[in-house]
């Protein structure tokens, strides 16, 4: 995606945070050196081509933006939040970037474009086999913790934050 939008006003940055599913192979960070080491593994294993920034070991930057494991924000040139999503869904991000580019193009062409505020419920493909690959990479503890969280979740009432379309 970064290549597709290269030269079209967007920079792409990946901020490396705490490990979402710590396990024997990638345990919880205790030092910045360990966090940098894990970030290098991420760069290699996931072949991340974007600029990778590593947050401090206390998670200062992550806390400022919401501590979720895989958020995406689009920030404009003036430093204002244009879009935010509590989960990263590449097709949704592409739609958002195309929308922004299209609105600017129409404005340049002389259309009177009035800004408005909008929110939406997003849906993404949840690939469980890929998720299991991630947990296996982390180690047996990560798999066991995930299974425990699923069992606890099954005993809870429906999540208030899950909005069906």
């Amino acid at each position: 995606m970064a290549k597709k939008y290269a030269g079209q006003e967007f920079n792409f940055v990946f901020v490396y945070t705490r490990e979402a599913h710590p396990g024997e192979n990638f345990p919880a960070h205790q030092t910045l050196e360990q966090k940098l080491d894990h970030a290098r593994s991420l760069q290699t294993v996931l072949d991340v081509q974007r600029t990778i920034l590593v947050d401090d070991v206390e998670g200062t930057g992550h806390e400022l933006y919401g501590t979720l494991p895989n958020m995406t924000y689009v920030i404009d040139r003036g430093g204002k939040v244009l879009f935010r999503s509590d989960w990263t869904d590449p097709p949704t991000i592409e739609r958002v970037l195309d929308y922004i580019l299209d609105a600017r193009k129409q404005r340049r062409e002389g259309l009177r474009m009035a800004p408005f505020y909008s929110e939406m419920v997003g849906y993404r493909w949840s690939d469980l086999s890929k998720h299991h690959e991630v947990l296996e990479r982390a180690g047996p503890q990560a798999l066991s913790d995930w299974e425990g969280s699923q069992k606890r979740g099954a005993q809870q009432p429906p999540r208030p934050g899950r909005i069906q379309i």
């Binding site: 920079n11 940055v13 990946f14 945070t17 490990e19 593994s41 991420l42 924000y73 990479r137 982390a138």
Partner: peptide
């Protein structure tokens, strides 16, 4: 503009 993704390896 900048697209910022937060994430980890696991």
């Amino acid at each position: 503009d900048v697209v910022i993704e937060f994430g980890s390896l696991t």
